[in-house]
Design a protein around this nucleic acid. Structure first.
Lengths: 232, 232
DNA sequence: ATTACTAACTTACGAGTAG
DNA sequence: TCTACTCGTAAGTTAGTAA
């Protein structure tokens, strides 16, 4: 179970964003940061330590001011709040992200993982469907990489890692989506694995290849709507 | 000088927004709120008191759960963060708000107020120009009211109130704008005064009527770009 | 039921200072 | 310079309880 980020840490995260630590490594000492937040150098230091421990911030400590950059997880935290504010203040959904790619064959690894009860039950509970035991592999071109990167900074649903005696399975992130505006499913991204960045693994309650009549080489469009955290 | 809202209070404000207290009166007890935030009933109570004291929240305490609604000032606080998040995460300006109206004659009150050194010097300092001693009055139709309301929930620049012996002058909010895409100026709204909601008072470094060749009855377009708080 | 007070507790802050 | 430790103090939280 992941603890909620405390407000004062969120505030530091937000401040770092405002200083531009979203895109580039920012050179910033704890003293400078404290001037900006209005706190003490000691507090700034502690906050950075905590954000780093939470995996929201990357640091390389150097003389003359450390180099800071928010991680994707950190950006996701901010992005979640953005979605909420947009929804409530502007009364509109955040824009959908659309990725287009080509159906390719996988190595049936998807089926292996989805078959594990540890993942299957979580998908049923958190995504709301019983997954078809297999994944649709979609290859995207380089022109889509930036969009994928943006997508992975948006709010996601987490599947916890687990062990089943033989081996351990890492946590994953899920991004609900619609395939070709017809079938709902989700993109699954293993948190720490060597994954080809150009392959998307899509899980759905149905056998997508049959239902949509897809074969290798066919183009598909995946539409992602930003998530919002449930209120209670 | 207005103190910065503390992170934990901002969090309560944000939570209230997520519960829908932006548009409607929401019936909510401190116990329920505490369940949602994950804190205690006592903290929830204290936070609501503080938000109310800051003028960010309106409450009517009733048996069965108080009725809550965020004030425009509260929404402005949230809106400011929205602008920042949009800017940094999506790399784009928030959308401009455009109001269109008709030039009308005022009662030279504008000139009286702008002439006061207490306001004039603040305008020079905070808006960056020495104001022409007079205002352009613009009347808007009812179809623009909703947009005006939206505008007044967006971030603004505050002019502090002051006294000059004879009488006291209340605080104002300023919204920088462009008139007809040509001349920069600002909308000035007295914070607590009986102001016709259909009249906008525009201040600028120049005599707008002459520079733009405006006469009573001419239509003008006012474009507002959402502000972002300066970083340091 | 409510809200909110007071007092005890816990957490966060920041001065001093080491590495 | 820098980061980050200790530790006394301030701030925020919560239990108990009143209204």
């Amino acid at each position: 179970m992941t603890e909620r980020l405390k407000p004062h840490l969120w505030f530091t995260l937000y401040t770092l964003m405002r200083l531009g630590a979203t895109k580039t490594l920012v050179r910033l000492s704890t003293t400078e940061l404290s001037r900006i937040t209005g706190g003490s150098q000691q507090s700034a230091s502690r906050h950075l330590q905590l954000l780093e421990k939470e995996g929201l911030l990357e640091r390389s400590i150097e003389p003359g001011g450390s180099r800071l950059r928010l991680t994707d997880k950190g950006l996701e935290e901010l992005s979640l709040v953005l979605s909420e504010l947009k929804w409530h203040l502007e009364g509109k959904e955040a824009d959908a992200v659309e990725l287009e790619g080509m159906v390719v064959s996988g190595l049936f690894e998807g089926a292996y993982y989805i078959g594990k009860e540890g993942y299957r039950s979580q998908i049923e509970e958190k995504l709301g469907f019983d997954p078809f035991p297999g994944t649709l592999n979609v290859r995207i071109g380089e022109e889509e990489y930036e969009k994928r990167r943006h997508l992975e900074r948006m709010p996601s649903i987490w599947l916890e890692g687990f062990k089943n005696g033989e081996r351990s399975f890492g946590p994953c992130r899920c991004y609900p989506l619609t395939v070709n505006d017809e079938v709902d499913g989700a993109l699954i991204v293993a948190e720490r694995s060597i994954h080809d960045f150009n392959i998307l693994e899509v899980v759905a309650p149905v056998y997508l290849r049959r239902l949509l009549g897809l074969a290798d080489g066919d183009r598909v469009r995946l539409s992602f709507l930003p998530l919002r955290r449930s209120a209670s």
